[in-house]
Design a protein around this nucleic acid. Sequence first.
RNA 1: AGGCGGAUAGCUCAGCGGGAGAGCAUCGGCCUUACAAGCCGGGGGUCACGGGUUCAAAUCCCGUUCCGCCUACCA
Length: 883
Amino acid sequence: MERTIISKSYEPKQVERKWYEYWEKNELFCAKGRSDKDPFCIVIPPPNVTGSLHMGHALNNTLQDIICRFKRMKGCNVLWQPGTDHAGIATQNVVEKDLASKGTDRHAIGRERFTELVWDWRTKYGGVIINQLKRLGCSCDWHRERFTMDEGLSRAVREVFVRLYEEGLIYKGDYIINWCPRCHTALADLEVEHEETESYLYYIRYLFESRDGHLTVATTRPETLLGDTAVAVNPEDKRYNGLSGKHVLLPLLDKVIPVILDRYVDTQFGTGALKITPAHDPNDFAIGNTHKLDRIKVIDENGRMNELAGPYKSMDRFECREKILGDLRQAGLLVKTEPYLHAAGYCYRCKTIIEPLLSKQWFVRAGQLAKEASQAVRDGKTRISPSNWEGVYFEWMDNIKDWCISRQIWWGHRIPVWYCEECEEVHAVKEDPVVCKSCGSTRILQETDVLDTWFSSALWPFSTLGWPDSTDELETFYPTSVLITGFDILFFWVARMMMMGIHFMGDIPFKDVYIHALVRDAEGKKMSKSRGNVIDPLEVMDEFGTDAFRFTLAALAAQGRDVKLSEERILGYRHFVNKIWNAARFVLMNLEDGVNTVSENRYYTLSDRWILTRLGQVSMDAAQAIEDYRFNEAAGLCYQFVWHEFCDWYLEMAKHSLYGKDRARKESSRATIQDVLMAVLKLLHPFMPFVTEEIWQKLPGTEDSIMIAAFPERSDFSEDKGALKEMELLMGIISGIRNIRGEMNIPPSKKLSILIDVADKEGSDILNRNLQHIRVLAGVAEVSVATGVSKPEASATAVFAQNQVHVLLKGLLDFEEERKRLRKEIKKVEKDIESSNKKLLNSDFMEKAPAEIIAKVKDKVETLSLKLEKLNQSFRLIETIDD
RNA sequence: AGGCGGAUAGCUCAGCGGGAGAGCAUCGGCCUUACAAGCCGGGGGUCACGGGUUCAAAUCCCGUUCCGCCUACCA
């Protein structure tokens, strides 16, 4: 590797691609099927093949990568299992759109040709998101990349389907489902989005069969009255006493339908009379079942009225609504129309209004599966954090409904069920059959529906590891360590993986689930294309660099809080990246001429001992924060430590040795700043893989990637409490002088003379050993340290602990300024003392507060009182002096 | 409708029982040979409002207001 002085600022673009290729080429992301190391495994939430990297992906995968890189450096055999999801409806939509632009459609070219085209599309574009993840630095084991429709996963899907079918956990049944007339498929309840929609509530008169009166019902969907098979009222509703057994005439069709009683009806809403259309409304369907009503389907799969709609046949559902309203008006049956706001269901893919339709669909019986999945979390086998999501999970699991798994599209796993046309036998089989197993007929037809996309992703944690075969990977990595995902797919995906994993593997799919926040826009809105409020992560990476972007995401990823991304914040962290770059530049410049590493007879200065101690502490704290998924805290610790301790104090103090005449110290210091920098790089690497690798490789003696370096441990650094204490004093004194300089507006070019009145021998030794640091860091020319000196008249004074620093300002001191400054300080200290004293005078506090708190407060008052006394002395001395 | 979360410095947000914090912005002083994407210093907050628990509340509990999200079968 080239070891030259590096440029003044960090240029991410040139660097990122280079190192990613290097990592891949050297197989640093590869996991071992068998290994002595502790296994650590994350399965990626597979992005849709149609996907393009958005903020959600960026956050999700950054967090995963941080943990994976961290665990690798901690010595684990890490498998980050990547792959993509075939995303049935989404992908089919993309290809259909393409066909439409060519003036054709899927029906014209047929199922076989169409799926071929989708596969072609996938080959051509399916890698886009993968490359974007690489851009983000994701350290997935790409050799193991899987696709939910590849051969192995398809085999797993069939195995699961057939076994569930044989166990009676999959069935086909009549049900009212959410139908998207545009996508032409059933949608699960979860795939329906509810949005407040302005509509009208129509009051329609249903005459009694005897024509001696009427009932008025309120509805938002008058067109469905064609399929009405009853009108329901609440049995408790006094207005409708004695209606039991009566019949009414369906308006326009004059069909006789019964009035039924059902407690479901809300007496407060509308007129308290509810029309029942079992074939086109989920609630009506349920009521229809209890009252054994006919189900008359009047709207077809295209959203048009069918032959049962009589005169309205083949009209569009909305067109029909207008026509019916007109006819009702004419017949005098439309009583009134009120504007009405209600939540209408929309297809989550294409935003078409959902039509509840009666149809035959395949279902997974979810009850028992959910119970076990729920229990596993109650037993603590799988922990969900932040823990409030456990409640949400239980709520869902305990009220679960059967899962509609069939979709009427062509792209997906075709349901492995064959119908025999001769004996009407139904077979669910793993291998495509040639003849009917029962009667031997060759006239067998496969089910045309495909499975819900989530069916295959539910198997992801074990299907990707080789199931149903027994493999080393399953043996080593199942259950996986942690699943990291957004809460938006807690039900879609996490819950179902739990059910399937427990059922088929006999064990939970992951030990931890970490639910992170959603990235939102400035108003807290979910970013979405349709809203036009997306910030493109690729553009952000272009502008600020990937490391800055990743660090921003980590720093903002506080548990349980949404991330509202701002460019300013990213800019701030780009500065941080640059700061690291320049710290490295400084180290490299000092290493350049000659000796690089001194391993023996190292001379450790105070600042060396201090920074090494701090490194141990920070490394431990940061590691623990990552382990606990407190990414923002880990990032914050690193930021604070690297910038304000490593750069601002340590490197500045190291200059003394580095620029000094003492050859041995100089070389020793060179070695130590390199050691410290290397530890800092390792600490930061999980967050900022690129810049840390770039610098790492420029340092002497680093032929291997930083990826395989060991993450700093506390035990790597000796803990020197004395160094912490000494530095505290030194920093306090220096800060005191700087504060006076700042407040007095004394430019740094003006060197100061100071007199330090030190409390004890120990302090005086410490300061005397470090006079040079005081000179350089505080801009002091003359300094003397003594005990019990009196304050020179023309001086400004700072008090730290029990020490006083007098800055001599002969002829310079603006006494009024200094009085102001001291008064401010005195006031602050007095206020502090007062509030603490109040506590000490409170007998309840003294009785009930823990001893250590009381001791702390006492100690504080004592220290502050001494400080106050010294400040007052200083103040009195100049109190009456005029300029 | 129910559930969940939020309200802290001008802005974006940490902190969630014992000294009000960060980044950005702002003000003052500095081109001090790693970094002006920088260095040094300062100012700025009845921690939404009202109650309560506690020796002690930004932090826990109840209520109010305003915001956001999720779930839901009021046609």
